[in-house]
Design a protein around this nucleic acid. Structure first.
Length: 1009
RNA sequence: GCGGGUAUGGUGAAAUUGGUAGACACGCCAGACUUAGGAUCUGGUGCCGCAAGGUGUGAAGGUUCGAGUCCUUUUACCCGCACCA
């Protein structure tokens, strides 16, 4: 009986679906285990073999845990709001909801292309997902709760005293009692103080404005990253190297009124929480970097002749007597106010020039020092000496207060700035407050010095100096200790269509939340998905997008009267809104009242194992932790951290294939540049390598072509003046070839298929120079797997040809889960052959060959070695070595001609997490009813591995010379006696007596001479 | 610049945590069965060498009876952050 993966896999996939084999129960006596994958964005391109890698790993763990007796929650869903669907909608006019649904469920799109659909592709791989809990973030019954969470954030403030988020009601109570003077909140800067009486005298509108400064999500005019090409603002984590993460479009700073999330309130808890969770050091480090905690002090400097003061944050308050000048960011709000008339022109010119430069330009050129003296002087808080105030673009408006106290003797940048402007108006001599030489460079160390020229700090070091200066600053009211974070509040508005609408309408420009009982506020229909002509977001195109506050319904814009009917918010939420809480929705996915019921949340707690890509290090993973902590504070989330253990699967890279088009390059004399003619001729890879170095080789390979080329060259040279310095060479244009046109294993190009492919219609008449064996061989290179590189391998194709179990095993076999590795279909025959061998242990040509005889000790040993290894491997997420162990075991059992039930039954169970279909079929063939999924995993028993003998390696001076088999119960003395008497030992020693003999029983024997 | 990570055959990679380096595969070589092979099976395969033997885990030192593994220095590549005060 042969192994037919297609029948077996279809059969069991159907069985699992019909029997709801993997549906998790919210009521179970078993311990819970929650394994989660980062849910995918369902793109139209479909899955390639890189996508399922993490899903296979998590599925192995999920299936293993079921065998171990856990109640396993292993859900899957879709992060289905997002930019690509909207861009596609703009291009094709199709509703994003329609294309999104098709990308998930499959079908035929408007242009007649068949879309497989994520769900169909995933189903073929045999995942044990509980699909009954599927979520889609773009479904109103899901985003209803996203809107609800937004409202909760709006109705909360962060109390630093209790160190948690609280209902805004507690803040209002405090205002009513004591005003805001005692309030210790994370809030906007520079809130005007008010008393209880003041508060009560405020109008409702004034009160709302005040509260907005405290809410955890707030509407404020802030500097945002505006991406004109995408027509939207972007969060900091959506910008990479100064351009948009999606599309690489330029981004500029712009002031806009936007919703923001006060994530900065959670900076310290987000940082501390990292110590509690089992994540990779690199991701934790990324988050630590992103949060960017620095400990130091705030210091205030009064500005001479102005009623103004400059607040600076510094990590080195101990160097305060070394302040030589101050620098403000050009955008700093005080710049215009303090600049003297004489300096006005220069300052304005500089500010304007800086504003024109994009973020990217500023980042690209960090070496150029530039700045202007404002003419103003600040006053040193202790010496009262005047300190010149400069502006310079090395100071960033977005960090700290956008101002620095420049201490050139202790800071490289201040040092460079001071030296650059040395001797110019407003730049004094550098003050040195260290007992160190600073003639060549600043002394930036925090140790190894004593403070000098520093009044009461003299003689102190960094630590004592810092402590002392903070005390003194506090005494005179000029500063205090301060912890600063790089983490900024996150912009939460997007000028896009395909996202969650805000449950918000505006009365007199002030935002009002719609009551939760009227949720969801469903995304309105629009004619087109582009911004409106007057620059409003796409929702500005909606005609039915106003809130009737009396009837609590979305109504036509015509009815807006601003007394009962008000305009609704036109922005939508960013992509991370829906993904920042979805793991909790899976716990109770069908709840229509709450995002999840309390009992379900309490039962499942949080995610035990989370697997996904490291690209979400500072986006999704940070926002999710933030929302989780917030929901915990407000009594909704069960735990402080959402994901206990995190594993980042590595990227699977593609093996791009190339054909090489010949290009003739020449220049009549060395003064001109190279000219080239593309030649419609493709050279096979091996010849290409030879020819690239010296094209004369071509003469041996194909003389006709060579002559033709020489003629072409000569023709070209005849056109110009033929000089003695003329040069000629050939090069090659590598052209990506679609993998469907090649044999992935032999790398042979199917020339007919290539010519027939519409992608390559330009090359229909091309000449192909093949290898000596008559084959055209393509070149291969490792690149990121992507549609545009034509190197995508579709898991469906692998499933068709080799089966899902083979695909699963092979993806695991490729290497350690967390490592990036290239996909090479050629290697798959190894695991494919393994499954066939495994099958043949159970069946011969006529059917089952299972016997109930007692297996031999060797068979037991092979099995238990495997039980031990596989159990350890799964616990350590080392799946590649498990597959190797399976191969070793099956090879051994084949040698032993093992067909014993007592071995083969546990073996099927061992394989089951990895290759579930074949395991089910083998289990069935062994005569069992039902699924193997929850049958107890085999237990390792030491007794089967106990050995009586050991093949000892015998080394001389650490070099292994021979092995000797000895009983394990020998004493060191007995071993020494036997080894020294051995002929081979005598030969090695050649008459010498060893100085030392190291014997580690059960391990090694080493003779030292 | 700071931080994290990686480095082992022609290739993907193992190595019980200091104890026989290269398991398991791919590829390659030889053979068997075959009209055929991108099928199946057998044997071989780090490098140099006919062999004995030598040599070998990015490089250089060190600790140790013994180092891929521990320590010091260093190089290359990948990732994150970056005029962060």
């Amino acid at each position: 009986m042969k192994y037919h993966h297609e029948k077996i896999e279809a059969k069991w996939q159907q069985y699992w679906a019909e029997n709801q084999t993997f549906a998790a129960s919210n009521n179970s006596d078993k311990p819970k285990y929650y394994v989660l994958d980062m849910f995918p964005y369902p793109s139209g391109a479909g899955l390639h073999v890189g996508h399922p890698l993490g899903y296979i790993a998590s599925d192995i763990v999920a299936r293993y845990k079921r065998h171990q007796g856990f109640n396993v929650l292993h859900p899957q869903g879709y992060d289905s709001f997002g930019l690509p669907a909207e861009q596609y909608a703009i291009q094709t006019g199709q509703h994003p909801a329609d294309t999104t649904r098709m990308n998930i469920e499959g079908g035929v799109d408007k242009s007649g292309n068949t879309i497989q659909g994520y769900r169909n592709q995933l189903d073929r791989i045999g995942f044990s997902f509980d699909w009954s809990r599927e979520v889609r973030t773009s479904n109103p019954d899901y985003y209803k709760h996203t809107q609800w969470i937004f409202i909760q954030l709006f109705e909360s403030w962060y109390n630093k005293t209790t160190d948690k988020a609280e209902s805004i009601c507690t803040l209002i109570q405090e205002f009513e009692k004591n005003g805001n003077t005692n309030v210790n909140a994370v809030c906007d800067d520079n809130i005007a103080p008010f008393s209880a009486e003041d508060w009560k005298s405020f109008s409702s509108e004034q009160q709302q404005k005040v509260l907005l400064q405290y809410r955890l999500t707030y509407l404020a005019e802030t500097e945002v990253n505006w991406c004109a090409a995408l027509g939207t603002v972007l969060a900091n984590d959506e910008i990479v190297n100064g351009v948009s993460e999606r599309g690489g479009h330029p981004v500029v700073r712009k002031k806009m009124t936007q919703w923001s999330m006060r994530i900065s309130a959670y900076a310290e808890r987000l940082l501390q929480g990292l110590n509690e969770i089992d994540w990779s050091e690199s991701i934790k480090e990324s988050q630590r970097n992103w949060i960017g905690k620095s400990v130091g002090a705030m210091v205030s400097f009064n500005v001479n002749n102005h009623d103004a003061k400059i607040d600076v944050f510094t990590t080195r308050p101990d160097t305060i007597f070394g302040v030589t000048f101050m620098t403000l960011a050009p955008e700093h709000e005080l710049v215009a106010q303090i600049t003297t008339p004489e300096q006005k022109a220069a300052v304005e010119a500089y500010v304007e020039a800086t504003a024109k430069r994009s973020e990217r330009e500023r980042m690209a050129d960090v070496k150029t020092i530039s700045g202007v003296f404002t003419g103003a002087y600040a006053e040193h808080p202790f010496t009262k000496e005047p300190i010149p105030v400069w502006i310079g673009d090395y100071v960033l408006a977005g960090y700290g207060t956008g101002a620095v106290m420049a201490v050139p003797c202790g800071d490289e940048r201040d040092y460079a700035f001071a030296n650059f402007f040395k001797g110019t108006h407003g730049m004094p001599e550098i003050k040195n407050i260290f007992n160190q030489d600073i003639s060549e460079a600043a002394y930036g160390e925090k140790g190894g010095f004593e403070l000098v020229n520093s009044d009461f700090l003299n003689g102190l070091d960094y630590k004592l100096g810092t402590k002392k200066i903070i005390e003194e600053l506090e005494k005179i009211g000029a500063g205090n200790a301060k912890v600063n974070y790089r983490l900024r509040d996150a912009v939460f508005s997007r000028q896009r269509y395909w996202g969650e609408p805000f449950p918000v309408y505006y009365v007199n420009g002030l935002p009002q939340m719609i009551d939760k009982k009227h949720l969801p506020i469903v995304l309105p229909e629009v004619e087109k998905y582009l911004p409106t002509e007057d620059g409003q977001p796409p929702l500005g195109n909606a005609t039915v997008w106003a809130w009737d506050s009396e009837n609590n319904a979305v109504v036509s814009n015509d009815l807006i009267d601003n007394t009962k009917v008000f305009p609704l918010e036109l922005n939508t939420m960013p992509g991370w809104a829906g993904s920042s809480w979805y793991w909790m929705r899976y716990m109770d996915a069908h709840n229509t009242e709450e995002f999840a019921n309390e009992e379900a949340l309490k039962y499942w707690e949080n995610v035990d194992l989370y697997i996904g890509g490291s690209e979400h290090a500072t986006g999704h993973l940070l926002y999710s932790r933030f929302w989780n902590k917030f929901l915990k504070d407000r009594g909704y989330a069960p735990t402080e951290e959402p994901f206990k253990k995190l594993i980042n699967q590595g990227m699977i890279l593609g093996m791009s294939a190339f054909v090489y088009r010949l290009k003739l390059e020449f220049r009549p004399n060395s003064k001109t540049g190279w000219s080239s003619i593309v030649y419609n001729c493709f050279i096979s890879n091996e010849f290409r390598k030879k020819i690239e170095n010296n094209y004369l080789v071509l003469k041996e390979i194909n003389e006709d072509l060579f002559n033709e080329i020489e003629m072409k060259f000569n023709q070209e040279f005849e056109k110009d003046e033929y000089s003695s310095s003329s040069e000629r060479r050939v090069s090659f244009d590598p052209i990506h070839v679609d993998l469907s046109c090649i044999n992935d294993i032999t790398n042979e190009l199917d020339i007919e298929k290539f010519k027939a492919n519409s992608l390559y219609s330009d090359y229909k008449d091309a000449v192909f120079i093949k290898e000596e064996d008559g084959k055209y061989i393509v070149g291969r290179e490792v690149e990121k797997m992507s549609k545009s590189k034509y190197n995508v391998v579709n898991p469906d194709d692998i499933c068709n040809e080799y089966g899902a179990d083979t695909l699963r095993l092979y993806e695991m076999f490729l290497g350690p889960l967390e490592q990036a590795k290239p996909w090479n279909t050629a290697g798959i025959t190894g695991v494919s052959g393994f499954l066939k061998k495994l099958w043949r242990l159970y069946f011969d040509d006529n059917g089952s060959v299972i016997v109930n005889d007692e297996p031999t000790a060797e068979m037991y040993k092979s099995l238990h070695k495997t039980i031990k290894k596989v159990t350890e491997d799964i616990e350590n997420f080392s799946f590649n070595t498990s597959v190797s162990q399976f191969m070793i075991c099956v090879n051994e059992l084949q040698q032993l001609k093992c067909n014993h039930r007592a071995i083969l039954e546990p073996l099927a169970l061992l394989v089951s997490p990895y290759a579930p279909h074949i395991a089910e079929e083998l289990w069935f063939a062994l005569g069992h009813e039902g699924s193997i999924a929850t049958v107890a995993f085999p237990k390792f028993e030491e007794k089967y591995l106990v050995e009586s003998e050991k093949e000892y390696p015998v080394s001389f001076n650490g070099k292994m010379r021979f092995t000797i088999k000895l009983p394990l119960d020998l004493t060191k003395e007995q071993i020494q006696e036997i080894v020294l008497a051995d002929d081979r030992t005598i030969a090695q020693l050649a008459g010498n007596t060893p100085k030392n003999i190291i014997i580690v029983p059960g391990k090694i024997i080493n003779l030292v001479g």
